[in-house]
Write a protein that binds this DNA or RNA. Structure first.
Lengths: 241, 241
DNA sequence: GCTACGACCTTTGTCTACCATAGCCCACAA
DNA sequence: TTGTGGGCTATGGTAGACAAAGGTCGTAGC
């Protein structure tokens, strides 16, 4: 138990993490539109914090690839388009294939049992429609694969876009039959690892990412333009007046 | 021409980038020892800047994986040991294999010519013993491979440890015959891409990283403990008194 | 009418000073 | 010896000031 700690992603008590969470959510939600400048003074007012946490949050988000910071020019929202999503999932697929292939080589029986246990919990969460638990278990499943590989650096890299992916799933959800397909794909990965079939494990992990990518692009396309309450149509800056 | 821009790594005019550069160099140089706490007030005095740039630099370095920041506890130097280096190079190898394989599929003849041109410049720089130009050309070679793949996100991830690797090479250098071997490995990669042999390109790129990893570990082991001028042997904090 | 220049304004990046709070250390007591 | 409590240090955050970089816009000159 307790194999997945990674406390660096534990939910934040510091202000700049809350600020980063808020800005990230707003980028995903479309409140902050692609290419929009994120000015520090405006964000300070909107989020009721001083400039210091805002600047640190923007740096954090740059690390996640959500904003671009140019020296002496400030931060802009990175456009999140289908190409970027495909690229991210391609990176995920490459790394997950490595994890699964390595797991097929070196996973102990106990680790495989643990994988199965997490898979069962994920199944339960899906049946109950418990979305947060579902996301958490899914994260645990893939993190455990990363830990089994023994390459923590690869796992860190793999988690670079975790917040972004989670936020997108929160917004767009899954297509109707995606959940049952996910379970089947996980079972295929586990099966390949149990059989010590490296090539099959790599392929299964890669396909899992690929299909997940296709699914989220379809889901996102269903809502071509969110325009929830007030879509600041032409406004290109965060200025509030 | 001008295929490799990536101005995000252009040398910095902002203070926090200079601070990050300095701290990074000192971590590599061993001035800041593994596990050592990096206290903001001390760094402010040492680097003659205020706390704001220091905090941002530390966040930046956390993004590069060189320091670990714990909320309300501060930053510590991440121990750079053989395992970490192996993990980083393994990630590099996974991504470079992807780049090379993809290049074998989709590179245009012009792009292959450009690869060869950079390779020639690298060869020249090595012959002249021009170390900075050598590093720059090597970077260009691998960046161009990443760009050919069309996945800029993967390239960004691939460059996560670029500063760290460069700093380590500056410190430890190369073994005697490594340079000629590098040239041969690059030629093999180019040859495989030209022949559109995906598997061979992937294998060549992976082996290139693996051998580079072995080389740097050997080089680093030659100097088990640098102890240049004043090695703060037992001191565990950056406190200067 | 179009271009180029310059003044103005906004924003960034940095500094200083200050404060609340969390974490650590150490003396002291049970 | 072990636990506890107080004091110290560092972190995290606020507020306000400033220089410098960048963008905007009006005007002068062609």
């Amino acid at each position: 138990m307790g194999s997945v700690l990674l406390d660096e992603f534990a939910h934040s008590d510091t202000s700049y993490r809350r600020v980063a969470d808020t800005i990230r959510d707003r980028i995903i939600a479309g409140t902050y539109t692609p290419g929009m400048r994120l000015k520090v003074p405006t964000l300070c007012i909107d989020l009721a914090v001083s400039s210091n946490p805002v600047r640190e949050a923007l740096q954090q988000l740059q690390g996640e690839g959500l904003v671009v910071i140019a020296p002496n020019k400030g931060a802009t929202v990175r456009p999140i388009d289908a190409r970027l999503i495909r690229e991210i999932y391609e990176v995920n697929g490459i790394l997950d294939a490595f994890f699964a292939g390595r797991a097929a080589q070196i996973a102990t029986d106990e680790q495989i049992m643990e994988l199965i246990a997490i898979h069962r919990k994920l199944e339960q969460a899906m049946l109950k429609g418990d979305v947060p638990k579902r996301a958490d278990n899914n994260h645990q499943f893939h993190s455990l694969l990363g830990e089994i590989s023994g390459n923590r650096e690869a796992l860190t890299v793999r988690l670079r876009h975790r917040n972004l992916m989670r936020a997108m799933r929160m917004k767009y959800g899954f297509s109707a039959d995606r959940e049952s397909i996910v379970l089947g794909e996980h079972e295929e990965i586990i099966s390949a690892i149990s059989a010590r079939d490296v090539a099959r494990a790599e392929y299964a992990a890669k396909m899992h990412c690929l299909r997940s990518c296709d699914d989220i692009i379809i889901q996102a396309s269903i809502e071509p333009r969110p325009s929830a309450t007030q879509q600041p149509a032409k406004r290109l800056t965060a200025t509030s007046n």
